[in-house]
């Protein structure tokens, strides 16, 4: 409860209507000392019935490491089945009971255990989901945004909530409404308010953008940028590389359950020469405004066992070494990459 008071209502609320201006979003006075969230060598597998009574393990995430810093937006980009949503579920501790998690997740310097995840969830760590069914349909908006607070703090919270609603252009009537009375855009703003009022430090947005028209898309993205500017660490999970490029600082590219590359936004330009991994380059060149060029093949299925590099089959520059073991994640040009060819 102590962290609730940390919100400073007088803080400059300058970004409400600010337009997103592409790449020019690096916040200047950022101190990159310690990562707020550190995921190290994470592996996730599910126990499943193969046929009849035999159980097998299905590995969906392997050797995954990422870091999220305060004041930064980290986009996680990948196709469906790359494990990006499962990573979010791992951090929030909402995996099903047949899941097995290995590796280490650190938050604020200490290990994030299941108990700590449950304690932090919805407070320090907030999820902004794609689905609007996330709100309780039988509860008034204001109650959902404020959550349960002690009686003596209620007045204060109410005041704070009004201010936040004003910032996101939500009318005072909204707080007395029920979720079904809200439009899609309003719902999104309410969800954002919920994360802001609980003074979450880490925001995880899971596919918040697909199917939005340009105006709504930019509006939604501006909320995340706003949060990052206030010092939150934002993880934006999406398959839409274009949306990610508009606001993020770093882009982690997921493929078949692991990270292939962590690139800076500035690397995405021209024909992608600055990009470190051929898969990232292919993603970039496949955009309709670029070359609209598709490489052949598919992401391997989860139950396929692959000895070498997981991108081996689709890679145009593979060599003998690539068939032997997954390349290590290494530092290249101010980013990270998992490729034998990169230097």
């Amino acid at each position: 409860m102590g962290n609730k008071a940390e919100i400073n209502p007088e803080k400059e609320l300058n970004t409400e209507k600010e337009l997103i201006t592409g790449l020019g979003t690096t916040s200047g006075n950022m101190k990159k000392t310690e990562a707020l969230l550190k995921v190290e060598d994470l592996s996730l597998s599910f126990t499943q019935y193969e046929s009849g009574l035999r159980q097998t393990e299905l590995k969906v995430i392997s050797n995954l490491s990422i870091q999220a810093y305060k004041g930064e937006i980290l986009a996680i980009v990948g196709s469906s089945g790359s494990g990006k949503s499962l990573l979010a579920h791992s951090i929030l501790g909402i995996l099903p009971s047949n899941a097995k998690l290995d590796g280490r997740i650190e938050y604020n310097g200490a290990e994030l255990t299941q108990e700590r995840k449950e304690e932090m969830r919805g407070k320090e760590i907030a999820l902004i989901p794609q689905a609007i069914t996330y709100l309780d349909p039988l509860m008034k908006i204001s109650n959902q945004v404020i959550g349960c607070v002690e009686k003596k703090n209620e007045g204060l919270m109410k005041k704070l909530q009004r201010e936040i609603f004003q910032r996101y252009t939500l009318k005072p009537e909204v707080e007395r409404m029920f979720p079904h009375e809200l439009s899609g855009g309003m719902t999104r703003r309410v969800l954002v308010s919920t994360a802001v009022i609980s003074s979450s430090k880490l925001i995880i947005a899971d596919e918040p953008t697909p199917g939005l028209d340009e105006k709504t898309l930019n509006e939604t993205l501006s909320y995340f940028k706003d949060m990052a500017d206030k010092g939150c660490a934002v993880i934006l999970i999406t398959h839409d590389i274009e949306a990610a490029l508009k606001i993020s600082h770093k882009i982690a590219v997921f493929y078949a359950g692991t990270v292939l590359e962590v690139a800076n936004v500035e690397d995405f330009k021209n024909n992608g020469e600055n990009l470190r991994h051929p898969y990232t380059r292919a993603l970039w060149n496949a955009l309709p405004q670029n070359k609209f060029q598709a490489i052949k093949g598919h992401q391997p299925m989860q139950d396929e066992v692959i000895d070498g590099c997981i991108f081996y089959e689709r890679c145009s520059r593979k060599k003998a070494l690539c068939a032997q073991g997954l390349p290590q994640l290494k530092q290249v040009n101010g980013g990270m990459v998992r490729c034998n060819n990169a230097s």
């Binding site: 469906s80 398959h239 993603l283 496949a286 309709p288």
Partner: peptide, 8 residues
């Protein structure tokens, strides 16, 4: 709902 390569 799909990535850019699959889309292309």
């Amino acid at each position: 709902m799909v990535d850019s390569i699959t889309q292309a």
